[in-house]
Write a protein that binds this DNA or RNA. Structure first.
Length: 354
DNA sequence: CGCGTTTGACCCGCGC
DNA sequence: GCGCGGGTCAAACGCG
């Protein structure tokens, strides 16, 4: 309980900058509706993690630690094999759980500077961990967290005397949708990303004094969830993990419907990349100093970040949001096709500061 | 009164 | 099989 409320406490040191990262576990057969920059193709597992222990549970590091905050701008390229196979398919153990936690010493520069574009890394802890018996979820899944799918327990039958949770279908592991995490340097935990969220839980995080909060999109029919937690290493960093796909336009933005909501793109199944229609947090006064790195597997990303971001979804970045926050053009138009593409120009950062 | 948050309990998967 | 930890539920509570 000591930790409670902590998340609300403002952190003195936080620079008004926002770094973001996103993570996810992308199915091998996943394909983006657009082409990705090479750099995003491969994300080798971090040296410090043994390839056999991708599961954060096995690691001494928590989700946050795995995510890490680093400045991969340069190092990243060094360890990115040009044609290396996707970690998801080769470097990762059966457990389909892919944690790309580049927290590697080799990567050196740990981020940080509040002025530089920072980090990203990701990790995903998925429950697909099923490595075990081969689940057949592939088919059902997508629907699962949906309403109909009684993601929760809509079954009225259950006379829940107390907390009789509906027994989950056996043999059917809960399939999680792709997740994407943002690391944001902010004093506020729950960033306003334009959607309306309802908190449905909070748990203490092991090895971290900060609790993790669970939110669900309040829009009917939308099963998107997100988790928000603060890095134990750097309290000024908030990691927001989105899971699922918004089935509606961003309420906070009339233009939010720029077509990504029902992106047909294939993430392997209906709920494609679009599935993570999360939007870039529009933090009011935090600027967007951000860099994003698709961490997992080799999803074909865009040729250039500009394309990547402006086009669709980027996992759901409402274009207008991006623009509004300064993630738009200037930041994305750079055509290097690499990380820099999505790094918010200092100019923008400057403006925000003013 | 409606909606959102808090919080303790419960479920489940995984590692030992 | 047991314990741990993550994730979720839902009653209670708070607030506008």
């Amino acid at each position: 309980m000591a930790e409670e409320k902590r998340e609300e406490e403002p952190h003195p040191n936080n620079s008004p900058s926002t770094t973001m990262a996103f993570s996810d576990e992308i199915p091998n057969n996943f394909t983006f509706p657009f082409q990705p920059p090479t750099i995003f193709d491969v994300m080798p597992p971090p040296p410090r993690l043994s390839s056999s222990s991708c599961d954060h549970k096995d690691s001494p590091f928590g989700f946050m630690e795995l995510l890490g905050v680093h400045d991969y701008t340069a190092p990243l390229f060094d360890w990115l094999p040009a044609d290396a196979p996707s970690p998801a398919s080769s470097n990762v153990p059966d457990s389909s759980e892919v944690l790309n936690a580049p927290a590697s010493p080799n990567l050196s520069s740990i981020s940080s500077s509040s002025n530089e574009a920072t980090v990203i890394t990701t990790a995903t802890a998925t429950e697909e961990r099923s490595g075990k018996g081969g689940i057949e979820h592939d088919e059902v899944e997508a629907e699962e967290e949906e309403e109909g799918g009684n993601g929760g327990r809509d079954d009225p039958d259950q006379d829940k005397t107390k907390k009789q949770l509906k027994p989950k279908k056996k043999n059917q592991k809960k399939q999680r949708e792709p997740r994407f995490a943002f690391m944001t340097k902010s004093e506020v935990d729950h960033l306003d990303d334009g959607y309306k969220w309802r908190k449905y839980g909070q748990k203490a995080v092991k090895n971290s004094p900060y609790p993790r909060s669970y939110y669900r999109c309040t829009t009917a029919g939308c099963g998107v969830k997100k988790r928000v937690e603060r890095s134990s290493d750097d309290p000024s960093i908030v990691v927001t993990t989105y899971e699922g796909q918004h089935t509606h336009p961003c309420p906070a933005s009339s233009r939010a419907s720029f077509g990504f909501v029902h992106e047909p793109g294939g993430f392997g199944h209906a709920r494609s990349f679009g599935s993570s229609h999360f939007s870039l947090p529009h933090q009011h006064h935090h600027q967007a100093q951000a860099s994003a790195l698709m961490y997992n597997s080799a999803p074909p990303f865009v040729n250039s970040a500009s394309n990547f971001m402006n086009t669709t979804s980027f996992g759901g970045f409402p274009q207008d949001h991006a623009n509004r926050r300064g993630f738009g053009h200037e930041a994305l138009l750079r055509d290097n096709g690499l990380l820099q593409d999505i790094i918010v120009p200092s100019q923008v950062r400057k403006e925000e500061k003013d």
